[in-house]
Amino acid sequence: MLEIKNLHAGVKGKAILNGLNLKVNPGELHAIMGRNGSGKSTLANIITGRDDYDIISGKIEFNGIDLNEMAPEDRALEGIFMSFQYPVVIPGVNNTYFLRAALNAQLKHFGKKEINAADFMRLIREKLKLVNMDEKYLSRAVNDGFSGGEKKRNEILQMLTLEPKLSILDETDSGLDIDALKIVAKGVNDFRDSTRSFIAITHYQRLLEYMEPDFIHILIDGKIVKSGDISLAQEVEKKGYSWLES
């Protein structure tokens, strides 16, 4: 699904990722852990194609397609999704309208018939239930006046609606209380199947307790220094990161 080979990348000319390798197969959930500044969010931004983030050398392929030079909207249409660490407030843009436009952009991209307003409402009502969100959020502007937890649930709602192949969860657990965390984790778990892949970026092991990752990777100074199973996350939780530094 996703293959990153010897990736050197950074923001505005400053190198942050220094030779990163990662392979994510269909159905897998990879967790990336690391301190602040280790390059976790840079990795998410590089995969999704945010402006100012550039590949210096190395390669990212998504289902065989080279992602370098590909616009963020085209990556999204190919099936890459990011749940934002800080979801953006977009004043005056109706949540339902936005989400239907996004879904229709995707349907159109695959040459399918666009979904009409009534069918979309039926679909979105089902998805709302999965993340325990009230229908009133649909009539609000995107993330406007949402609490931290509501914003994160709104991200998962978008994921469930757009059904991406690869979902990057950028610190989706931060700012969530335990109940909201469980709802979000359940949303992700129910969505998992043998064709979909996930990269969960997190500081803490907390989220992983609810999500059952297949692999844990530790990122230090822009490189994966150690990979393992869930026991690695537990070890990091106990001992911190310093023992992994060379």
Partner: peptide, 15 residues
Amino acid sequence: DPEALFYLKSRGLSH
């Protein structure tokens, strides 16, 4: 707002 623009594009909407 470039953040808002990226957010919408990251959902597959054109520029």
